[in-house]
Simulated scan of single mutants.
Amino acid sequence: MTPDTDIAERLRQSIGHLVRVVRAQADTLPPPQAAALGTLDRDGPRTIAGLAAARGVKHQSMSRTVGELEALGLVTRTPNPDDRRAVLITLTGAGVARLGEDREARRRWVAGAIAARLTAEERRVLQTVPDLLDRLAAGP
């Protein structure tokens, strides 16, 4: 491995581990439901097929997830103005609030872990990481 591929692998593993731990500690929704709500929040209303494609899951799985979210009052089905045969899945006010609660719980958990486990110098270093990751994600 080159130094760049080594750090890339360490980042991949560490970021994945952090995400899994934070979700396990802070999320109140099952991962498929939280992911669907997050997609709707970021991308706006979608068909079930569009949601399934965005999440990389089968239509049947997303249909089940949407049904669960709808039963919880977190999403609603609205007519698609571009295709009368289709419906759009839209976040409700309760869905926006629930997503916000989960995000706040994650923030609190990470902030608590930072305060408890990192030195002041490590916190200063950590402050640079989001900008670096954003630059990496920006692409060429």
Rank of each mutant, 00 (worst) to 15 (best):
T92E: 10
D27G: 06
G16I: 08
L99D: 01
Q60Y: 02
G50H: 01
L91I: 00
A116D: 15
A35S: 07
S63A: 14
T65E: 06
H59R: 14
T28N: 08
Q33T: 07
V110R: 10
V22M: 05
T5R: 14
K58N: 11
D4C: 07
L118E: 03
Q25D: 01
P79W: 02
Q25T: 05
T28P: 01
R20D: 15
T65F: 04
Q33Y: 08
R23D: 15
A53H: 07
A35K: 01
K58Y: 10
R42T: 13
G44D: 00
T90Q: 12
L69W: 01
V87H: 07
L11C: 13
V125K: 14
A116N: 12
G93N: 14
R42W: 04
Q25Y: 07
L69N: 02
E9H: 12
T65Q: 05
A52M: 04
L51I: 04
G93L: 14
I15H: 11
L11Y: 12
R106V: 04
I48W: 06
A120Y: 11
D102K: 02
G16L: 11
S61H: 06
T47I: 03
R103F: 00
D102I: 03
P31T: 07
V21A: 02
G56K: 01
L69V: 06
P140R: 04
D6F: 13
K58H: 13
P31C: 03
V125S: 12
T128K: 11
D41Q: 08
W109F: 14
I48Y: 03
R108D: 11
R98L: 05
E101I: 00
Q60T: 12
R106T: 06
A36H: 06
G139Y: 08
D6L: 12
A111F: 07
R117N: 15
M1V: 10
P32C: 06
A52F: 01
I7W: 14
L99F: 04
G139P: 00
A86R: 08
R124M: 13
R117C: 13
W109Q: 11
M1W: 09
L18N: 00
D82A: 06
T65K: 03
I114A: 03
P81S: 07
H17W: 07
T47K: 02
L18Q: 08
T128H: 13
R98G: 02
A52G: 04
L51A: 00
V19A: 10
V75G: 00
A53W: 03
G100Q: 00
R98M: 08
A115V: 11
I48A: 04
